[in-house]
């Protein structure tokens, strides 16, 4: 299992790039022009998240510097989940950027290559903003009774959390 996962990590990006560019050439697409066109959008994406990052990193920094996060960690029962990850897990269904802010705090405190850093990275990659997505999608069609959506969404999120703790 471990070898397979590492193999995937090392080869996925090079193979993907090879495939996309190769397919582009095969289809006679002006690959470099297309690339630079798209890269411009990437620039806008990166710049447009800056205000969010400033706000949330500042917010998490305040929680960290005040000692609140350590105090919270002291309150939580030990054993089931690694304590520093609990705020990330709790925040994840509500806000993607706030959860990212908390994960970045873990990177800073424990390092991105530590168990906690890796678990936080995987966790944010395999779960979604449950409540935001549900309200956005259901408001669009004026649905108020969501039947089994919440149960399914929470089950998938729990599976993602468990998988991250196991694979980190």
């Amino acid at each position: 299992m471990d070898t397979f996962v590492n193999f995937l990590s090392g080869l996925f990006i090079p193979l993907l790039v090879f495939y996309i560019v190769g397919f582009g050439l095969l289809m006679k697409c002006p690959v470099f022009d297309a690339f630079t066109d798209g890269a411009k959008d990437g620039f806008h994406v990166a710049v447009s998240i800056l205000p969010t990052l400033i706000g949330l990193i500042a917010g998490v920094r305040v929680l960290r510097a005040s000692g609140f996060l350590d105090w919270l960690a002291g309150l939580l029962p030990r054993g089931v989940l690694p304590v520093p990850l609990v705020p990330v897990i709790l925040m994840r269904p509500f806000s993607s950027s706030a959860a990212t802010g908390l994960a970045l705090d873990i990177f800073k405190e424990y390092g991105p290559d530590s168990y906690l850093g890796r678990a936080a990275s995987i966790l944010l990659s395999c779960t979604e903003t449950v409540f935001y997505t549900m309200s956005l999608y259901f408001v669009t069609v004026k649905v108020t009774k969501t039947r089994w959506t919440m149960a399914g969404a929470m089950l998938a999120t729990a599976a993602g959390v468990a998988a991250s703790l196991w694979l980190a």
Partner: peptide, 22 residues
């Protein structure tokens, strides 16, 4: 944040995503 191997989570992330989706 100074990861020695930033892409080392790609494999685990794909597997974890596959699990949550399954």
């Amino acid at each position: 944040y100074g990861s020695v191997d930033p892409t080392s989570i790609v494999g685990p992330a794909i597997v974890a995503t596959a699990i949550s989706t399954a």
